[in-house]
Every structure is written in C-alpha cells, then in structure tokens.
C-alpha cells in the first residue's frame, strides 16, 4: 500500500507559475465565489440552516471562502466542514489504495440542514455521486446543493451543479487545473492540452 494521492503540500508551491493557459485569475475567482455566495443566499433565502461541506482537497478552502463571504453579508458564521469521498469512489479498485483525507462534519451535524457541497471542478459527476453516498452515511439533510468553481462538461451521470463559477467548454484531452492560495500558493484556473505533464486536474 502506498499513497498515490497525498494531500498537497505547501512547500515550494509559491514560486511555480501554473502551466497552461490561465482562464480564471485571482480576481476572476474572487468574483465568482462572491457571486456563488450571493446566489446561495438568494436561493436559500438566507443562511440560517446552511452547512457548507468542501470536498477535499481544493473544495475545502473554497467552502471556507464562500462561508467568509456569507458571514460578511449576513453577519453570522455558517458551519463549514469537509467530506472525504475516497472510500465511496467507484474507481477505488482501479488504483492502489489512496490516502484518506479529512472528513470534518460540523458538531451540530447535517440533519434537516441544507448542505451545500463545494468542489473545484465538475467533470464526470462521479465524485459528486460518491459525495452523495458519503453524505447518506452521515445524516439526512433537508436538501443538498452543489457549488463548483468550474464546470467543464462531459458528465457521465445525471448530475448538475446549482451554483457554477464558470462554465468552461473543454475537450476530453484537455486538463483543467484549479489552484488555490491555501494549498498551492496562488489562485488560478488553467487549461492545458494535457501533454505538458502537469499534475492531474481535479478529476471530478
């Protein structure tokens, strides 16, 4: 057993410019998250019963940023947590066993709350399918919504996002990579032709 996907480390990440073509820069990302935050509040008619659950790794800092924006608007903190879906993935057996990432359910739980799952990229939809299964073992929310920074299309399951930062039409061979300052030292969404050997996009 060996860790194939270890949580990203911060060391050395600051200096590297993201490879590929930048489609969202720091400001674009900030604007997108702000808009998503407002849309969540609008759709939910406030933030009182919300719980934000980021999907590791990069969904988690994004969830925290959305929570900060909601707090700034509403004046109270919304519970934020993380939900690791590794053991629920349908491709678990296709690769060597992967290291688990943090699952952190806010102390008041998710029962009868509106859970907003937050992830960086929506692609095949399989990660979200896994997240819904994982959520099922944690409690019974009144509703589950999905917020993603980038929707790159190519869905393989009947899943769609409720809140999207940017729709990004891509070809299957292209790689979409989201970097966030908390783990990568820089906020950026890049797209490359997949031949530059850059480490994998969030396989969503």
């Amino acid at each position: 057993m060996c860790a194939q996907e270890r949580p990203p480390t911060q060391a050395g990440a600051h200096s590297e410019p993201p490879p590929g073509r930048t489609v969202l820069d720091e400001r674009d990302i900030a604007r997108a998250l702000t808009r998503i935050s407002h849309e969540i509040l609008e759709r939910n008619k406030g933030g009182r019963d919300l719980v934000l659950l980021g999907i590791p790794s990069r969904g988690v800092p994004l969830a925290h940023r959305i929570a900060e924006r909601i707090a700034a608007v509403e004046g109270y903190a919304v519970p934020v947590g993380s939900l690791d879906v590794t053991m629920y993935r349908d491709d678990l057996r296709l690769k060597p066993a992967r290291a688990l990432m943090r699952t952190d359910i806010p102390s008041d739980g998710i029962d009868d709350r509106v859970v907003v799952l937050v992830d960086d990229v929506l692609f095949s939809g399989r990660t979200i399918r896994a997240a819904l299964d994982a959520l099922n073992d944690v409690g019974r929310p009144s509703a589950v919504r999905l917020a993603v920074l980038v929707d790159r299309g190519h869905r393989e399951l009947p899943i769609r996002a409720d809140f999207v930062g940017k729709n990004l039409p891509t070809s299957l061979v292209e790689r979409v990579q989201v970097r966030v300052a908390d783990t990568d030292g820089v906020d950026a969404v890049t797209i490359s032709d997949g031949s530059d050997g850059s480490d994998g996009e969030a396989q969503a």
């Binding site: 057993m1 060996c2 057996r93 690769k95």
Partner: peptide, 8 residues
Amino acid sequence: LGGNESGA
C-alpha cells in the same frame, strides 16, 4: 485491500 491488487 482498498485499492487494486497490483498497487505499488
């Protein structure tokens, strides 16, 4: 056992 058997 969680991954595939040919795993590293």
